[in-house]
């Protein structure tokens, strides 16, 4: 029995090792590798069998309504809680079995950015650097660096509890950065900030690209469009879509509508448009004077703009606006998340 146990342990170690070697050789560029991750709380599945990978240096946005499983995913990724099933690898190390190795590589800022309110900024960051395994000298150096990086120099001796929310958020970010992690996980980093603060936190995060891999969760769409190279849309514990914001928009562009404002008699305009075989649907309204505004939906994803221009030219109508409405990420988000939300209701 004893020998069998030893052999089993040996085999498991070897598998682990060989898998890690194979992984490091084949996909050195993969930072996060989540496969079939499921997290169940008592009687409730928060994350349901999701898989995705994040390459080194990417900024990925995790998008979804409240309760979609974003925070749970991040908590598992940070190593705070184990997954019910499935594996997560960060930098080639298993998050559960090589917990120490992965924790050293991850800078994690949880939801609501918990800090010790009674400590001073520099003191707190130094304390955190020490906890992350740095010596006195090294932690002092690093703290000075991140304080400058995050624009905390003028408040570094203030008590955290007395700082504004924007500064607190930066302290949280500085904490996530202090041990030079390869991967930074930020759970709703801009929640509750005013627009000015949001902008500064965003630019901070944007500056991290390249040196760090960043995973951000949010339910603010423009944020994702602005910062992230890729979006994962989550709902009900599943990943529904994963692509760049542009690709998602392009995918949706097939049905994009054309808006035209033309000076013509409404009835003539309507008949002219209806005679176009490419137009599936038309909505019209008189805007001002003789101008009418038409919203045209194409039948097969064709771009209607040249046709409309020609139509106006042929009839001698004045054309003052011609635009194609691009689907915003919001539309995509709504479209992706709508059917299931209604199911739930």
């Amino acid at each position: 029995m004893f020998y069998v146990g030893i052999v089993k342990v040996f085999i498991r170690r070897w598998r682990n090792y060989s898998a890690r070697m194979a992984l490091s050789i084949t996909v050195r560029n993969v930072m996060i590798e989540v496969s079939n991750l499921t997290k169940r709380y008592a009687g409730r599945t928060a994350v349901d069998d999701i898989s995705f990978t994040v390459a080194r240096g990417e900024i990925v946005g995790l998008l979804g309504p409240n309760g979609a499983g974003k925070s749970t995913t991040m908590r598992v990724l940070s190593g705070f809680m184990p997954a019910t099933s499935g594996t997560v690898r960060v930098g080639g190390f298993d998050i559960f079995h090589d917990s120490d190795e992965t924790r050293r590589r991850i800078g994690y800022m949880p939801e609501n950015n918990p800090l010790h309110p009674e400590m001073r900024v520099r003191e707190y960051l130094k304390f955190r650097a020490r906890l992350k395994g740095f010596g006195w000298k090294k932690s002092r150096e690093r703290v000075t660096t991140v304080i400058e990086q995050c624009g905390l120099a003028e408040v570094d001796r203030r008590i955290i509890g007395q700082l504004s929310k924007g500064y607190k958020q930066r302290v949280g970010l500085a904490d996530a950065l202090v041990h030079e992690p390869e991967l930074i996980i930020l759970d709703e980093p801009t929640i509750g900030l005013d627009p000015q603060q949001i902008r500064s936190v965003r630019s901070l995060i944007k500056n991290l690209a390249g040196n760090h891999t960043v995973l951000i969760s949010t339910h603010i769409l423009p944020e994702v469009e602005m910062m992230c190279g890729r979006v994962l849309i989550m709902l009900g514990g599943r990943v529904l879509a994963s692509d760049t914001p542009e690709n998602l928009q392009r995918r949706m562009a097939g049905g994009s509508q054309v808006i035209a404002e033309i000076a013509a008699s409404p009835s003539a305009l309507r008949t002219a448009c209806e005679n176009l075989s490419q137009v599936a649907c038309i909505e019209m309204a008189v805007v001002e004077g003789e101008f009418s505004r038409c919203v045209l939906t194409p039948r097969d994803g064709q771009d209607l703009r040249p046709l409309i221009f020609k139509l106006a030219q042929v009839n001698g109508w004045t054309l003052r606006e011609l635009t194609r409405s691009r689907h915003s990420l919001e539309d995509i988000y709504m479209q992706v998340t709508r059917p299931r939300t209604e199911d739930v209701e």
């Binding site: 940070s78 705070f80 924790r103 918990p114 010790h116």
Partner: peptide
């Protein structure tokens, strides 16, 4: 309650 337990346990402690 304050959530610092999470930040504490995700360091090298």
């Amino acid at each position: 309650a304050s959530g610092t337990f999470e930040t504490l346990m995700t360091t090298s402690v």
